[in-house]
Design a protein around this nucleic acid. Structure first.
Lengths: 117, 117
DNA sequence: CGGTATCCTCAAAGATACTG
DNA sequence: CAGTATCTTTGAGGATACCG
Protein backbone atom coordinates (compact mmCIF):
# COMPACT_ATOMS: atom_id res chain seq x y z
CA UNK A 1 0.00 0.00 0.00
CA UNK A 2 2.76 2.39 0.77
CA UNK A 3 2.43 6.03 1.51
CA UNK A 4 1.64 8.57 -1.11
CA UNK A 5 3.26 11.91 -1.27
CA UNK A 6 0.55 14.51 -1.28
CA UNK A 7 2.50 17.47 -2.41
CA UNK A 8 -0.25 19.09 -4.33
CA UNK A 9 -1.94 22.01 -2.76
CA UNK A 10 -5.29 22.41 -1.13
CA UNK A 11 -7.30 19.80 -2.93
CA UNK A 12 -5.28 17.01 -1.44
CA UNK A 13 -7.49 15.96 1.40
CA UNK A 14 -9.81 14.90 -1.37
CA UNK A 15 -7.20 12.59 -2.80
CA UNK A 16 -6.21 11.40 0.64
CA UNK A 17 -9.73 10.27 1.28
CA UNK A 18 -10.04 8.69 -2.12
CA UNK A 19 -6.87 6.78 -1.47
CA UNK A 20 -8.44 5.08 1.48
CA UNK A 21 -11.81 4.24 0.11
CA UNK A 22 -10.81 4.07 -3.54
CA UNK A 23 -9.92 0.40 -3.73
CA UNK A 24 -11.97 -1.55 -6.18
CA UNK A 25 -14.36 -2.85 -3.55
CA UNK A 26 -13.69 -0.75 -0.50
CA UNK A 27 -16.61 1.53 -1.13
CA UNK A 28 -19.12 -1.28 -1.25
CA UNK A 29 -17.61 -3.04 1.71
CA UNK A 30 -17.76 0.14 3.73
CA UNK A 31 -21.29 0.66 2.61
CA UNK A 32 -22.39 -2.74 3.83
CA UNK A 33 -20.52 -2.38 7.07
CA UNK A 34 -22.38 0.83 7.73
CA UNK A 35 -25.38 -1.34 8.32
CA UNK A 36 -23.68 -3.39 10.97
CA UNK A 37 -21.37 -6.25 11.72
CA UNK A 38 -20.75 -8.79 8.99
CA UNK A 39 -18.85 -11.99 8.99
CA UNK A 40 -16.62 -12.86 6.11
CA UNK A 41 -19.05 -15.14 4.38
CA UNK A 42 -21.79 -12.57 4.66
CA UNK A 43 -19.71 -10.06 2.84
CA UNK A 44 -18.89 -12.63 0.20
CA UNK A 45 -22.58 -13.22 -0.29
CA UNK A 46 -23.21 -9.54 -0.75
CA UNK A 47 -20.33 -9.18 -3.17
CA UNK A 48 -20.61 -12.14 -5.51
CA UNK A 49 -18.07 -10.74 -7.93
CA UNK A 50 -15.21 -10.40 -5.53
CA UNK A 51 -12.87 -13.28 -5.06
CA UNK A 52 -12.09 -14.14 -1.48
CA UNK A 53 -8.54 -13.11 -2.06
CA UNK A 54 -9.59 -9.64 -3.10
CA UNK A 55 -12.13 -9.35 -0.35
CA UNK A 56 -9.54 -10.34 2.23
CA UNK A 57 -7.11 -7.87 0.76
CA UNK A 58 -9.53 -4.97 0.76
CA UNK A 59 -10.59 -5.83 4.28
CA UNK A 60 -7.00 -5.92 5.44
CA UNK A 61 -6.29 -2.58 3.88
CA UNK A 62 -9.33 -1.08 5.51
CA UNK A 63 -8.16 -2.59 8.76
CA UNK A 64 -4.72 -1.10 8.22
CA UNK A 65 -6.29 2.25 7.60
CA UNK A 66 -8.00 1.95 10.93
CA UNK A 67 -11.43 1.99 9.41
CA UNK A 68 -12.45 -1.57 10.04
CA UNK A 69 -12.14 -3.83 13.04
CA UNK A 70 -11.54 -7.53 12.56
CA UNK A 71 -12.61 -9.86 15.32
CA UNK A 72 -11.59 -13.49 15.25
CA UNK A 73 -13.50 -15.98 17.33
CA UNK A 74 -11.38 -18.97 18.17
CA UNK A 75 -14.16 -21.42 17.62
CA UNK A 76 -14.30 -24.77 15.96
CA UNK A 77 -15.99 -23.51 12.84
CA UNK A 78 -13.87 -20.42 12.41
CA UNK A 79 -15.77 -17.19 12.65
CA UNK A 80 -14.48 -13.74 11.83
CA UNK A 81 -16.52 -10.62 12.10
CA UNK A 82 -15.92 -7.23 10.61
CA UNK A 83 -17.30 -3.95 11.76
CA UNK A 84 -16.45 -0.30 11.44
CA UNK A 85 -14.20 1.39 13.95
CA UNK A 86 -15.10 4.78 15.33
CA UNK A 87 -12.98 6.29 12.63
CA UNK A 88 -14.76 4.17 10.09
CA UNK A 89 -18.07 5.49 11.32
CA UNK A 90 -16.93 9.01 10.60
CA UNK A 91 -16.87 8.03 6.96
CA UNK A 92 -20.61 7.56 6.98
CA UNK A 93 -21.47 10.97 5.51
CA UNK A 94 -18.87 10.43 2.81
CA UNK A 95 -20.13 7.02 1.83
CA UNK A 96 -23.69 8.22 1.96
CA UNK A 97 -22.80 11.15 -0.27
CA UNK A 98 -21.20 8.76 -2.75
CA UNK A 99 -24.20 6.49 -2.71
CA UNK A 100 -26.70 9.29 -3.01
CA UNK A 101 -24.94 10.75 -5.98
CA UNK A 102 -24.55 7.37 -7.60
CA UNK A 103 -28.22 6.69 -7.18
CA UNK A 104 -29.19 10.00 -8.65
CA UNK A 105 -26.72 10.27 -11.50
CA UNK A 106 -25.18 6.87 -11.94
CA UNK A 107 -27.01 6.23 -15.17
CA UNK A 108 -26.00 9.48 -16.78
CA UNK A 109 -23.24 8.42 -19.12
CA UNK A 110 -22.99 4.70 -18.90
CA UNK A 111 -25.77 2.49 -20.06
CA UNK A 112 -24.60 -0.67 -18.36
CA UNK A 113 -26.42 -3.64 -19.75
CA UNK A 114 -28.99 -1.25 -21.13
CA UNK A 115 -30.24 -1.61 -24.68
CA UNK A 116 -28.16 -4.47 -25.95
CA UNK A 117 -29.45 -4.35 -29.48
CA UNK B 1 -12.19 3.55 -19.79
CA UNK B 2 -14.74 1.15 -21.11
CA UNK B 3 -17.91 0.34 -19.32
CA UNK B 4 -17.99 -1.51 -16.07
CA UNK B 5 -20.56 -4.07 -15.25
CA UNK B 6 -22.09 -3.17 -11.94
CA UNK B 7 -23.66 -6.45 -11.04
CA UNK B 8 -23.15 -6.22 -7.36
CA UNK B 9 -26.10 -5.39 -5.25
CA UNK B 10 -27.18 -2.28 -3.44
CA UNK B 11 -23.85 -0.74 -2.60
CA UNK B 12 -23.01 -0.19 -6.20
CA UNK B 13 -23.92 3.42 -6.60
CA UNK B 14 -20.99 3.98 -4.31
CA UNK B 15 -18.66 2.24 -6.70
CA UNK B 16 -20.28 3.93 -9.65
CA UNK B 17 -19.48 7.30 -8.18
CA UNK B 18 -15.98 6.26 -7.25
CA UNK B 19 -15.43 5.10 -10.79
CA UNK B 20 -16.06 8.59 -12.05
CA UNK B 21 -14.09 10.59 -9.57
CA UNK B 22 -11.60 7.91 -8.63
CA UNK B 23 -8.91 8.67 -11.17
CA UNK B 24 -5.58 9.63 -9.72
CA UNK B 25 -6.18 13.33 -10.09
CA UNK B 26 -9.85 13.67 -10.79
CA UNK B 27 -10.71 14.52 -7.23
CA UNK B 28 -8.31 17.42 -7.07
CA UNK B 29 -9.25 18.66 -10.49
CA UNK B 30 -12.89 18.59 -9.54
CA UNK B 31 -12.07 20.34 -6.33
CA UNK B 32 -10.34 23.18 -8.09
CA UNK B 33 -13.04 23.48 -10.69
CA UNK B 34 -15.57 23.89 -7.92
CA UNK B 35 -14.05 27.28 -7.42
CA UNK B 36 -14.61 28.36 -10.97
CA UNK B 37 -13.36 28.22 -14.53
CA UNK B 38 -9.75 27.30 -15.10
CA UNK B 39 -7.70 27.21 -18.19
CA UNK B 40 -5.38 24.34 -18.85
CA UNK B 41 -2.26 26.09 -17.70
CA UNK B 42 -3.95 27.21 -14.52
CA UNK B 43 -4.74 23.67 -13.60
CA UNK B 44 -1.20 22.66 -14.38
CA UNK B 45 0.01 25.33 -11.99
CA UNK B 46 -2.23 24.04 -9.26
CA UNK B 47 -1.16 20.46 -9.84
CA UNK B 48 2.58 20.58 -10.23
CA UNK B 49 2.93 16.83 -10.02
CA UNK B 50 0.72 15.92 -12.87
CA UNK B 51 2.18 15.64 -16.32
CA UNK B 52 0.23 17.38 -19.02
CA UNK B 53 -0.54 14.02 -20.54
CA UNK B 54 -2.20 12.83 -17.37
CA UNK B 55 -3.97 16.09 -16.80
CA UNK B 56 -5.36 16.01 -20.31
CA UNK B 57 -6.41 12.43 -19.84
CA UNK B 58 -8.19 13.02 -16.58
CA UNK B 59 -9.84 16.08 -18.02
CA UNK B 60 -11.01 14.13 -21.04
CA UNK B 61 -12.44 11.41 -18.88
CA UNK B 62 -14.26 13.91 -16.76
CA UNK B 63 -15.55 15.47 -19.94
CA UNK B 64 -16.68 12.07 -21.18
CA UNK B 65 -18.46 11.52 -17.91
CA UNK B 66 -20.33 14.73 -18.53
CA UNK B 67 -18.87 16.37 -15.46
CA UNK B 68 -16.62 18.92 -17.08
CA UNK B 69 -17.10 21.25 -19.99
CA UNK B 70 -14.20 22.02 -22.27
CA UNK B 71 -14.31 25.26 -24.20
CA UNK B 72 -11.79 25.95 -26.91
CA UNK B 73 -11.20 29.50 -28.02
CA UNK B 74 -9.92 29.61 -31.56
CA UNK B 75 -7.46 32.36 -30.84
CA UNK B 76 -3.91 32.92 -31.87
CA UNK B 77 -2.48 31.94 -28.53
CA UNK B 78 -4.63 28.87 -28.01
CA UNK B 79 -6.87 29.07 -24.99
CA UNK B 80 -8.89 26.27 -23.49
CA UNK B 81 -11.08 26.66 -20.47
CA UNK B 82 -12.54 24.04 -18.24
CA UNK B 83 -15.54 24.34 -16.00
CA UNK B 84 -18.02 22.07 -14.34
CA UNK B 85 -21.22 21.15 -16.10
CA UNK B 86 -24.50 21.22 -14.22
CA UNK B 87 -23.99 17.57 -13.52
CA UNK B 88 -20.50 18.30 -12.31
CA UNK B 89 -21.89 20.87 -9.92
CA UNK B 90 -24.08 18.22 -8.35
CA UNK B 91 -20.88 16.55 -7.22
CA UNK B 92 -20.11 19.44 -4.95
CA UNK B 93 -21.46 17.86 -1.77
CA UNK B 94 -19.54 14.70 -2.56
CA UNK B 95 -16.25 16.45 -3.14
CA UNK B 96 -16.79 18.60 -0.10
CA UNK B 97 -17.49 15.50 1.98
CA UNK B 98 -14.28 13.96 0.74
CA UNK B 99 -12.30 17.07 1.48
CA UNK B 100 -13.83 17.55 4.90
CA UNK B 101 -13.06 14.02 5.90
CA UNK B 102 -9.57 14.23 4.52
CA UNK B 103 -8.93 17.40 6.45
CA UNK B 104 -10.21 15.91 9.65
CA UNK B 105 -8.72 12.44 9.44
CA UNK B 106 -6.20 12.58 6.65
CA UNK B 107 -3.31 12.69 9.06
CA UNK B 108 -4.08 9.32 10.57
CA UNK B 109 -1.68 7.36 8.43
CA UNK B 110 0.11 9.86 6.28
CA UNK B 111 1.94 12.91 7.45
CA UNK B 112 1.81 15.18 4.42
CA UNK B 113 3.93 18.27 4.75
CA UNK B 114 1.79 19.02 7.78
CA UNK B 115 3.61 21.26 10.13
CA UNK B 116 5.97 22.60 7.55
CA UNK B 117 7.90 25.06 9.64
C1' DC C 1 -0.45 27.21 -25.41
C1' DG C 2 -2.43 23.02 -25.24
C1' DG C 3 -2.20 19.25 -26.62
C1' DT C 4 -0.94 14.10 -29.26
C1' DA C 5 1.95 10.00 -29.97
C1' DT C 6 5.04 6.39 -27.95
C1' DC C 7 7.07 3.65 -24.90
C1' DC C 8 7.79 1.78 -20.17
C1' DT C 9 6.85 0.45 -15.45
C1' DC C 10 4.72 -1.39 -11.84
C1' DA C 11 1.16 -2.56 -8.88
C1' DA C 12 -3.77 -3.46 -8.46
C1' DA C 13 -6.91 -6.86 -9.72
C1' DG C 14 -8.13 -11.61 -10.92
C1' DA C 15 -7.84 -16.89 -11.40
C1' DT C 16 -6.63 -20.99 -9.19
C1' DA C 17 -5.22 -24.12 -5.75
C1' DC C 18 -4.06 -25.39 -1.20
C1' DT C 19 -4.60 -25.12 4.32
C1' DG C 20 -5.54 -24.67 9.52
C1' DC D 1 -15.14 -21.10 7.35
C1' DA D 2 -11.81 -18.04 6.42
C1' DG D 3 -8.15 -17.52 4.87
C1' DT D 4 -2.86 -17.89 2.44
C1' DA D 5 0.29 -18.75 -1.53
C1' DT D 6 1.37 -18.28 -6.54
C1' DC D 7 1.05 -16.85 -11.02
C1' DT D 8 -0.79 -13.90 -14.72
C1' DT D 9 -3.00 -10.20 -16.72
C1' DT D 10 -4.37 -5.66 -17.45
C1' DG D 11 -4.12 -0.97 -17.75
C1' DA D 12 -3.58 3.21 -15.04
C1' DG D 13 -0.05 6.11 -14.47
C1' DG D 14 4.21 8.30 -15.87
C1' DA D 15 8.46 10.03 -18.82
C1' DT D 16 9.71 11.97 -23.03
C1' DA D 17 9.36 13.95 -27.46
C1' DC D 18 7.08 16.17 -31.09
C1' DC D 19 3.01 19.07 -33.29
C1' DG D 20 -0.83 22.63 -34.76
Amino acid sequence: MAHKVYDCSPGCPVEATLEKIGGKWKGVVLYHLLEGVHRFSELRRKLPNVTQRMLTKQLRELEDAGLVLRTVYAEVPPRVEYCLTDLGQTLRPVVVALKTWGDAHGGSTNHLHSSAA
